[in-house]
Simulated scan of single mutants.
Amino acid sequence: MGERMKKLIGIAIIASSFVALSFSLYYMLKIYQSDLSMSTAGEPMLNEHIERIVIISQEQGSFMMNAIQKGAREAAEEHQIQIDFWGVYRSNLEGLIKQIDIAIASKASGIVVEGVDHPDFDLMVKKATEKGIPIITINSDAPSSLRKSYIGSDHYQEGIIMGEYIATQLNGKGVVGVIKNLSSPSTDDLRLKGLTEIFRKYEGLRVVIAANDPEMSHPKMQTNDILNHNPNVTAFVGLTSEAGESIVQAVHARSRTKEYPIFQFDDSPQTMMLIKNGQVKAGLSQHYEDMGILSVNLMKRWLDAAQLPLENSYFTPISIVTSAGEEEKAP
C-alpha cells in the first residue's frame, strides 16, 4: 500500500472519529439539559397550581384507612383537588414523623394525618405551620400541637355510649375485663374514662385491666392475665380494633361452657363476622367514610380562606352495631 493511500485512510479514520465524538457530545449535552430541567422543576409531573392534599395514616391498608380514603377521594373529586395517601403499615411514630417531613418537603398544600400526642409530633406540626402548610388531625388527635382542627369520633363519648350499652346488657352488675392498646394509649384512655364514668353509676359494675406490663401488649395475653387474676370476671370489652378475635380465642381456650359477653370498639369486617356468629355481642361504628369526606372539605375551606378559623374539633357520628344493625347513633 502506497504512502499516499495510508495518509488518506488515516485522515478518514480521524474524520469519522471526530464525527462520532461530535454526536456523543451532542447527545450527552441533551441528556444533561434534560436532567437539569427535571431537577430544577421540583415536581415535573405535577401542575404546581393544582392543590394537593396528603393524607397520612398510622395503619395504612387497614379497614379504617380504606374507608377514610374512600370518603376523601369522593370529596377530592368534587373539589378537583389532587390527593395522595401515604402512611406506615404498623403504628410507628418514627415512620409517621418521616412521612410528614417528606410531605412538607414535597410542598403539599395541606396534610391530614392521624394525630399522636407526643412532643416529636408537635414539633413536626410546628415545622409544617412555619412553612405555611396546614395540618388537620383525623381519627386520633394531638391537642397540644398547632394542628388547625381535629376530625373524628369523640373517644370519650364513645366510652359513654358503649358504657351505657354494656350496663344495660349486663343489668347493671358484673366485672368487665378491659383490653387496651399499650403502645398508643391516648385514644383508649379517653374511651376508658367514659366507660368507667358510666359504670360508677352502678354499684354492681366494675372494671378490671391486665397488669401494666409491656409484655402484656397482645390482647390474648391481657385476656389471660385478667382471667388468671379475676376469676369472677363476667364480660370483656376490647378498646382496640384488633382485640375482638383474640379475646374470643382466649376465653374459648379457657372454657367452652362459660359464656362471656364481649363488646368491641370497632366495626371492621372481622368484628362484624364475630357479631354475626354470636361471638361478639356488639361493636362500635365510627363512620370513617364521613371522616374522609369532612377532612377534605375542611382542608379546602382552609386553603380557600373561607369561613375561618375552623372549629377546634369536628366530631363524626358514633353508632352501636349489633347483629340487628346500627342503633344509638350520636352526633
Rank of each mutant, 00 (worst) to 15 (best):
V280S: 04
K180P: 03
E259W: 02
D266P: 04
P317I: 02
S186Q: 08
Q58I: 01
Q169A: 15
T316C: 05
I50V: 14
M162H: 03
K193Y: 06
D188R: 02
G204C: 11
S57K: 03
I104N: 05
D267A: 13
S16H: 02
A15Q: 02
M221D: 08
I293N: 06
D267L: 04
Q286D: 10
R206F: 09
S268L: 05
N232H: 01
F85S: 11
K6R: 15
A67S: 13
A250R: 06
M216L: 14
E289Y: 08
E43Q: 14
S91I: 09
M299N: 00
D101M: 01
V248M: 12
R90I: 07
T187Q: 14
G159Q: 01
L170I: 13
V321R: 01
E77H: 04
E77N: 11
D101K: 10
E43R: 12
A103W: 02
D120W: 11
A330N: 06
I102C: 05
S145M: 04
A67T: 10
A67N: 05
Y314T: 02
T316E: 06
G87E: 07
Q82E: 13
Q264L: 10
G115H: 07
K300R: 15
T168L: 13
G95P: 05
M65R: 00
A282P: 05
V233H: 06
Q99F: 06
A235W: 07
V178F: 07
Y156N: 02
F63H: 15
N297V: 03
F18A: 14
L195M: 10
S183P: 00
T240G: 13
D141W: 05
E326H: 07
I81K: 12
I102G: 06
F18E: 07
I179Y: 11
R256G: 14
M291W: 00
I166W: 02
T240A: 11
Q33N: 15
L274W: 02
L239F: 12
L96A: 04
P119W: 08
G95D: 05
L170A: 04
Y288S: 04
E326K: 10
A330W: 03
N230F: 12
